[in-house]
Amino acid sequence: MDSTSINLAPGVTGTDMHEVRLVGRGGQGVVTAGDLLGKAAVLEGRYAQSIPTFGPERRGALSQCTVRVSKDEILLKCSSTSPGVLVVLDSSIWHFAPITLGLVPGGRLIFNSTRPPAEIDAELRGGKYGYQPGIDDFEVLTVDATSIAMEILGRPITNTSMMGAFVGATGIISMDSLARVLEERFGEKAALNIQAAKAAAAGIRKIGD
């Protein structure tokens, strides 16, 4: 997918900075995904930052990572307060944490889910899990990253697929840059991960699809 054809996701209001919140469970590769997305942006000559937040627990607990991308140095040293993009790697963890906190108007939410995006959209707007986005202007997208990962990688590790979906849905970095950092990080295993990323970018479902 050519990133120039994508309608760019919104940045932090009044700045050229993009703020992305990655949400998943420990062990799903949230921290690695944040690190690699930041690295890809740096490859493109931009400034980036990836700040993970997790607790002393290990696998299975809530794990989040803030990624910021800007043309200039980023001064903020805190977790995301105004994300324009949410990438949710796990299909159930978001029931337990107010993941939409601070979401900016026009925000894009990409869920790893087999469900139609309209269902998740209705649940979020209805406050089914005890919190609401606080704004009306946002778009829910879904991609079945777990099936893609199982089919291509043979393991339910969805971070590389979800990074692909992020590229496909936001245009904040290019698929070429993502492929380059995956090659650097995963060596021989990169080819399948790049295949998974591209499959996920192509498999995004919008409301009404």
Binding site: D35, G38, A48, Q49, S50, I51, P52, T53, K77, C78
Partner: peptide
């Protein structure tokens, strides 16, 4: 340097 906010955060 602040734990997590610098120790675990990546920057150029």
């Amino acid at each position: 340097y602040d734990g997590f906010i610098l120790s675990h955060a990546s920057e150029p």
